[in-house]
Simulated assay, not measured.
Amino acid sequence: MNSYKDRTLRLIGPLVVFMIGSLFFRLNIYFEHDLPFIIRFQSIAIIYGYICWNLSRWVILTIQKRYPGFHRTRQRLKYIALAFPLLVHIAYFLRYFTHLYINDQPIGWPTLADYTYTTGIQIFYHCIYVGVYEGLYVFEQWKIVYYEREKLLNIQWQERFDSLKSQINPHFLFNSLNSLSSLIREQPEQAEKFLDEMSNVYRYLLRNNEQELVSLQTELQFVESYFHLLKTRYGESIQLKLENLSGYEQYLLPPLTLQILLENAVKHNIILKDQPLVIQIYVEKGYLVVQNNVQKKNLKVVSNKVGLNNIITKYQLLKQPEPVIESDAVFFIIRIPLIGNEYIYTKIIDIAHQH
């Protein structure tokens, strides 16, 4: 609790408690006694209100200093509970004997009715004291724990995100080198061209894989370059159709998403001149749709679904809607949510708040 808030509470708090007590517990005094008695009675009430407020404050802050932190709340409450009856009775007897002295009455023990009634009032007051200081302290400690946990979670998610990105580079390189090896054996004249295009694509991959998001326009430019590699190998047996993409170029998605999906389609389907693999990319209802005709290979392809799982996990880490996968005997379709620029603005604001 900052010093300004503490000073404000110490100044205003007892006055508020005094007014509540006068309204709900001591209103009869104004109708049953004369003005001098009312002045004496209420003066004692407000003076000891400040004394008891600050005494309770000192005890609670001392316990908080001895047992700090959100995780020690139970310990603090235990010691506050032990100190609570003592504080209540100190407040009761201070007021009781002061009233006897001011009203020139003989010293004696209170009646049971007076004791229970006034003690009940003091219990109410001290619940307010404890609620104010321990309640505010617990809330502030909870906020610290919450933001630290959020910060740690963001760090963990970022590490997982970076780990996912690092998996893509070796995966892409391995498949590209396999393709190059096949070309060297089967089509040596195409191998040099393939190597040049692979260098361009890999340069792009290294540069953009460090980013969390890229624009659809950037991703499409990369996919066209990547498709040249596939086209070099498969010729007219593979086709790529880009449709209905105008106006969506500045929307965002994780880098290399389309490359993974194209690679997935190539891996699992027959690609022949009389059975061409047709891949379509278009936008529908805010989703980037990647669709290919299903021509499953006769030999079962071993798949651990790393590529698709990487895409889904990236969207989870970005706290965005997950991609939707639809598959039947004719088409395999995956719908990728396009992320608007407001995501960037929201993240900037979150980072600013954390600092």
Rank of each mutant, 00 (worst) to 15 (best):
W142T: 04
T119Y: 10
E197P: 05
L195N: 06
K151G: 09
I128H: 06
F139I: 11
Y133F: 11
L112Q: 13
K193C: 08
T232F: 04
Y137Q: 06
G235R: 05
P188Q: 03
K193N: 14
K193R: 14
E159I: 05
E189H: 10
K165N: 12
L183D: 08
I128D: 02
E150Y: 01
Q141G: 05
Q190L: 14
Q122M: 10
H126C: 05
G108E: 15
R149I: 04
Q211G: 02
I121T: 07
E148G: 01
Q187A: 08
L180C: 03
Y115A: 10
F194H: 08
V145E: 13
N178V: 03
Q105G: 04
F139E: 10
R185I: 13
L195A: 14
R207A: 11
Y117R: 14
E192T: 11
M198G: 07
K165C: 00
L213N: 01
Q211C: 02
Y146C: 09
L136H: 10
Y146P: 04
E212R: 15
V130D: 00
L205K: 00
Y147Q: 15
F227P: 04
E159R: 13
I128T: 00
R233H: 05
D162P: 04
Q122N: 14
E186M: 09
Y125G: 03
Q122I: 08
G135K: 08
N154S: 15
Y146A: 14
N208G: 03
L177H: 05
R203D: 09
I102V: 15
S225N: 12
L229H: 01
L216G: 07
E148A: 04
Q122V: 06
L136N: 04
H126W: 00
Q217S: 15
W157G: 11
E186C: 08
Q156W: 04
D114F: 15
E140N: 15
L164G: 00
G135M: 01
Q187L: 08
T218Y: 00
E189T: 06
Y117N: 14
V145T: 07
G108R: 14
Y226K: 03
Y226L: 06
Y133G: 02
G131K: 02
N208H: 11
E212Q: 15
L112A: 15
H171R: 10
L177P: 05
L153R: 14
E192K: 15
F174A: 12
L206Q: 05
P188K: 06
Q190G: 04
W109T: 08
Y234L: 00
D114Q: 12
T218I: 08
K193F: 12
N154D: 09
E224C: 06
T119Q: 04
Q211Y: 09
Y133P: 11
T118S: 13
